[in-house]
Design a protein around this nucleic acid. Structure first.
Lengths: 81, 81
DNA sequence: GCGGATTTGTACGTATGTATG
DNA sequence: GCATACATACGTACAAATCCG
């Protein structure tokens, strides 16, 4: 049997936290090392999961800073600073 | 097969310096950057090694100051103020 | 109180090796 | 062989705490 990979499961969890509003736009995701310990997985697994959300355009990752929830879509009007 | 990890080896070295009395109680360990250069390893490896000794209760680390050899055991009598 | 130097704390980026299914 | 997953180990960058002049 091929269970859903851990990184997919973790991506699902994080995606849910974002789409549910539990993680607000521009707010940081838990750090890789936090998620590593929290979820009991290797850091590489966490990175793969976050990479999925990055591919989906849900988060942006800044080296040395963290990963952040992307804003839905600035369109025009009150755009980004 | 699996050689002892560098951080374990370094922890062993530092532990020996403590248990042998080469590093006295309350005296500071060499700084992370010193050990990094001295041992030719990455800082993360040094930090992991010191973390082991911290787990073992041999040293305490103070942010911005350093890691210090812990005193064997205050017990009672002339305890800490 | 301020500025610079030192030291620890945190966080991501990357590479390699091992093991399993 | 490949994907998954973990462990080790390197590097870079910046923040926070501390110390001293």
């Amino acid at each position: 049997m091929n269970p859903t990979p851990l990184y997919t499961q973790l991506a699902d969890i994080l995606r849910e936290m974002i789409t549910s509003g539990q993680l607000q736009p521009r707010s940081p995701l838990p750090s890789e090392s936090y998620l590593q310990q929290e979820q009991g997985v290797a850091r590489g697994t966490v990175r793969t999961a976050i990479g999925i959300l990055r591919d989906e355009g849900l988060v942006v990752t800044i080296s040395g800073r963290g990963s952040f929830v992307k804003e839905p879509d600035p369109k025009a009007s009150s755009g980004p600073d």
